[in-house]
Design a protein around this nucleic acid. Sequence first.
DNA 1: AAAAAATAGTCAGTTATACTGATTATCATA
DNA 2: TATGATAATCAGTATAACTGACTATTTTTT
Lengths: 142, 142
Amino acid sequence: MSRIFKSYGFITGKVEQLFEMDFSKELAPYNINVKQYGVLIKIDEKPNSSQKDIAKELKIDRTTMVSIVDHLEALEYLTRTKNPQDRRSYCLTITAKGKQILEDCWGALEQSERKIISSLSDQEARLLKDLLIKIFKNQEES
Amino acid sequence: MSRIFKSYGFITGKVEQLFEMDFSKELAPYNINVKQYGVLIKIDEKPNSSQKDIAKELKIDRTTMVSIVDHLEALEYLTRTKNPQDRRSYCLTITAKGKQILEDCWGALEQSERKIISSLSDQEARLLKDLLIKIFKNQEES
DNA sequence: AAAAAATAGTCAGTTATACTGATTATCATA
DNA sequence: TATGATAATCAGTATAACTGACTATTTTTT
């Protein structure tokens, strides 16, 4: 057995690559990538977030965030409005068009992921997700 | 619960980021990144592989492979010699220096990963790896 | 054997992505 | 009011990865 499979990091990276490669094909027609879709999700769930809020949650650099939001704004998937409480920051909100794409692609994502984890039983799949979330949450706390 | 955590792809990506961020710090003094370390592992395990062999296994583009091997060769972590059986291709082999770094960093990787999965029991950790490998192997077959 | 097709690797040029550090506008605090 | 902090921006830089053309070699076809 190769060391690649002895390492959690490498095997996690490999599997991540599978998910990303497949889903990004679905997103391509909408002219966005997985990271940008993640931003859309966050803005949908927490309307009026600032760029900084989203950047922090998704571990995206502040300057990179500018170009992502520029892009999503140009596509009219979200709007930037000055925050009246703090005019340094923006309130980001998803547009109807953005929401539509969010929902359309969510179905594609679920389907894509089902395909990739098809070798796992329902119980195994649930377990896998729980374990990954446990690792992530543990790190968020510290 | 955010959709980010409902998606296998997103949560896998997040966890991968944790592994990569930590281990890449260990590799930095040796002037290589995680992907390049992966190439070293493969060459160590299958000496005399061609660039194409490695590229295929690790899903790296052939032209990207050229720069990775250039880099590792410049650092004297591996050598390129013409394959006498097929002079179009190279035989890649790890050097003593490369092997040394491979082993030194492997310890660091294990330690780094132990830290990141510290919230899991031994059994959970083993299970996680098994499930990830199952997903990856399933896809390799098709 | 000669011609044609395929393959491994290379290279120039392009694109995408993300970062550094400086700057602007605004807000909080002293 | 003055000082410092913060949110976002921007120019410039770095890097990674890809496209497509190219060389050298091998394989296949005729």
